[in-house]
Design a protein around this nucleic acid. Structure first.
Length: 448
RNA sequence: CGGGGCGUGGCGCAGCCUGGUAGCGCAUCUGCUUUGGGAGCAGAGGGUCGCAGGUUCGAAUCCUGCCGCCCCGACCA
């Protein structure tokens, strides 16, 4: 993409309403624009990031055996009356009426709807288990939206729902999502920590929040440092096999958000050097809730004994739009974003330091063509801006690699690669630079 | 929802108290000079001062109502 044709409205100054760094940078880097309290338009650069996050989430859901579908954003109040939540949900639910005065709502979640869909299609225990998901916009009329896309009212969420015949089956479904989440966040450059969470009326141990550590995180969290070093399950993980050992390993260490924190246990179970008391961002939440919806909504299956019983359910959420902010919180510096390659809006920023100069124009065009030919997503700054401005904006939008082409280098037959993550620079002949970028980016995109 | 604050050009702000031709910085446009870390000079364009009433000869400024947004608290992917 040529920058001269792109839509990238950058801000030099930080808008006063943005309190945390990810919000500030998303506004300044032209990724989002606020259209109302907690409601954002995704501008081209931000949209590319959102799509990449979504794709990784999708790939890992599919790998774990979940099946994608799509449910509507607008739901009928009638459905929510079946579960009793229409009255219970409160003002967070955005309620609307259609022209026939029928009560509708913009879905804050989809348990009722998926349960209705499931019960219409499944009768027997032989049809179980089922694991369905979709990635869809939600609306929760939060009392106080803030932190940009980290806590918006409208947000993109992946929500999955499992249906099993018994609790043992439900646990297997839960474990699939547990492992899928570890992989999902790791692929985005995030170290996620599953922390024991509130279980609601069901009790038990099947509820975890996936937290990433960040100084600007919303909640205080406490965990064992050794959790950060556990290996992430590989792409060769057999999701049809027994995943329990992986879960056991992860849950054997202390990890809790402040509402579940037990200071005594924390100090007793962990050596002082391994204690982490930090801030965290919740990017995923998985939990088992049994027959909470299947019972009132009569989502029943017939068992081998010929008796009908409500299915055992669980739900599994990932905050897709929130992740865009969370990744910035984890990867940035004073100058701007530092995108990990798999979620970067473009892989390479090609900087023509003297647009209009035949030599640099020619060299850039060749490099641009070579990179695009190899599938490297390149944002080519072909504008007439001054070098300082070009460097500053590349740093701000945070593409993983900058390929800098100027007359001074070309005189010596070299161009420069700057790696945004650590600022490392390297001068190479143009062809060699392109080859190196292709190799490095392919390596970074390889799914382990 | 309680408490606090703010709406003035694309962004950041001053002006309001004490009514009298709407300003500054950045950005934008034109020209010249510049060109390896957000340039210099000269010129130019752009604002129903959130909206609606009211007071007044006259309202960005005073009064009333409404709308929007932000911050602190309880809630949430």
């Amino acid at each position: 993409m040529r920058l001269s044709r792109y839509f990238l409205p950058l801000l030099k100054e930080t808008p006063s309403e943005a309190q945390i760094v990810s919000h500030q940078l998303m506004l300044r880097a032209g990724m989002i624009r606020q259209e109302g309290a907690g409601i954002y338009a995704w501008l081209p650069l931000g949209f590319r990031v959102l799509k990449k996050i979504e794709r990784i989430v999708r790939e890992e859901q599919d790998r774990a055996g979940a099946v994608e579908m799509l449910m509507p954003t607008i739901q009928q109040a009638e459905l929510w009356r079946e579960s009793g939540r229409y009255d219970a949900y409160g003002k967070e639910m955005l309620r609307i009426k259609d022209r026939g005065e029928r009560e509708m709502l913009y879905g804050p979640t989809n348990e009722e709807m998926i349960t209705e869909i499931f019960r219409a299609g499944i009768r027997s225990y032989k049809d179980l288990p089922k694991l369905l998901y979709h990635i869809q916009w939600k609306f929760r009329d939060e009392i106080r939206p803030r932190f940009g896309v980290m806590r918006g009212r409208e947000f993109l969420m992946k929500d999955a729902y499992s249906f099993d015949f018994d609790e043992a089956g439900a646990r297997r479904s839960y474990n699939r999502m547990f492992v899928a989440y570890l992989r999902t966040f790791a692929r985005m450059g995030l170290t996620s920590i599953p922390m024991r969470a509130e279980t609601g009326p069901i009790g038990g141990d099947l509820s975890h929040e996936f937290i990433i550590l960040a100084d600007t995180g919303e909640s205080a969290v406490y965990c064992d440092r050794r959790l950060l070093e556990l290996p992430v399950p590989g792409a060769d993980t057999d999701f049809e096999g027994d995943l329990q050992p992986i879960i056991d390993r992860y849950t054997s260490y202390y990890a809790a958000t402040d509402e579940k924190h037990d200071a005594a246990a924390f100090e007793k179970q962990i050596a002082e050097a391994d204690r982490i008391a930090a801030r965290g961002i919740e990017v995923g939440h998985i939990f088992y809730f049994g027959t909470k919806y299947s019972e009132p909504m009569r989502a029943h299956v017939t068992g081998p004994d010929g008796k009908e019983r409500p299915v055992e359910m669980g739900s599994y959420g990932v905050g897709v739009s929130r992740l865009a902010g969370a990744i910035i919180e984890a990867h940035h510096d004073e100058a701007g974003c530092k995108w990990p390659v798999p979620v970067a809006p473009f892989h390479v920023g090609l900087v023509n330091l003297k647009a209009g100069d035949a030599g640099t124009d020619d060299a850039c065009e060749r490099l641009y063509a070579a990179l695009e030919r190899e599938g490297v997503e390149t944002l080519y700054d072909d504008t007439g801006a001054r070098p300082g401005e070009k460097f500053a904006r590349m740093d701000l939008i945070g593409l993983p690699y900058q390929l800098i082409v100027g007359p001074r280098g070309l005189e010596n037959g070299v161009v420069e690669i700057k790696r945004r993550a650590d600022g490392a620079r390297e001068e190479l002949a143009p062809e060699a630079a392109a080859e190196k970028l292709v190799a490095d980016i392919r390596a970074a995109l390889a799914v382990a």
